[in-house]
Design a protein around this nucleic acid. Structure first.
Lengths: 179, 179
DNA sequence: GTCTATATACAGATAGAC
DNA sequence: GTCTATCTGTATATAGAC
């Protein structure tokens, strides 16, 4: 049933965000879903298949969320704030799925790495377009959006150690200061 | 001998940077050092001991490098450029050890997590002091240094996927634009 | 210090019954 | 679809000889 498969993807997503790809085992995943690990293989023959599908779903959902922000908020300031909220949803204790996978990208197949690259490229493009609506502040929109995306991923990464929102809050303050 | 122990730490550091804590095994580590895994346990009884010592050495060396920058360069611009070079030394294919450990921090013991926190705090403080020497540019030195540290870690993380210096280069351009 | 040998646990994956 | 049973490989870790 699609229900079981979705449940497995949901658990896997959270586990990877918390413990990484190597921290996710078919056995634990199955136990949490109250089935056996061999049944997990029925839905995802190889672990790489699971990783790919989880990444696909996560990035698709993220892009949809960006689209929804565009519809709900017309002002750049609100849009940036909404993006910050998206990132903050991960805390405490979780990292952006794509950030985690990027850290472990040496162990991913090319298909999944392509999804990762696309995630970063598309998110940066979205940021650039939002920034283009702001009054000019020295840096180019292309450059500033790259820096902001980097700082969002890095802040979430570092905040994970203590479970606080310390760095993410500073990034948010900085973004608000751009206006 | 201290020589063997140092060799093991050196291999372990690079392996963690490339593949993470879970990608490092005593067996592979031993093979690369041409000894047996039981001999690795002679130097590091538990894997957590190895992780801790590797982290201690890495952070100490990093702080020493910052100190050396202070001695060699007196101008903020040069100092920031030298820090960028430190970060770039990791590429291609490697991530900042502390960034990688931060991603996997759920699986670390408290002693090692403390080293991580200290690494980020000290590096941010160094950045803040450098920025305080710059002409004011809107953001506070405390806030801007947090954002810059975040962006450095995030840029290195994302650049690892493709093995390019794309995001790190944008961060560098942004930093140079601060002056 | 380094080895062989081994204990124990867990990983991903498959075969075949129901 | 889900199960039991099992294969094969690898992980951390230890005991004890040399």
């Amino acid at each position: 049933m699609a229900q079981t498969k979705n449940h497995l993807k949901s658990i896997a997503t959270r586990t990877i965000q918390e413990k990484g790809v190597n921290g996710l085992s078919f056995r634990d995943l199955a136990a949490e879903a109250n089935i056996k690990s061999s049944s997990v293989h029925y839905y995802f023959p190889q672990k790489a298949d699971l990783i790919y599908e989880v990444t696909k779903e996560y990035t698709d959902a993220f892009f949809q969320a960006l689209h929804k922000i565009d519809q709900l908020s017309k002002h750049s300031v609100e849009r940036l704030d909404a993006l910050l909220d998206l990132y903050k949803k991960n805390l405490p204790g979780r990292f952006c799925l794509c950030g985690m996978l990027a850290a472990e990208s040496n162990q991913l197949d090319n298909k999944t790495k392509d999804l990762l690259s696309r995630f970063f490229v598309k998110t940066q493009k979205w940021l650039r377009e939002v920034i283009e609506d702001l009054p000019s502040n020295g840096a180019t929109p292309a450059g500033l959006s790259s820096v902001l995306l980097s700082s969002l991923e890095g802040a979430l990464l570092m905040d994970g150690v203590k479970g606080k929102e310390k760095y993410l809050t500073e990034v948010q303050k900085f973004i608000r200061g751009l206006v």
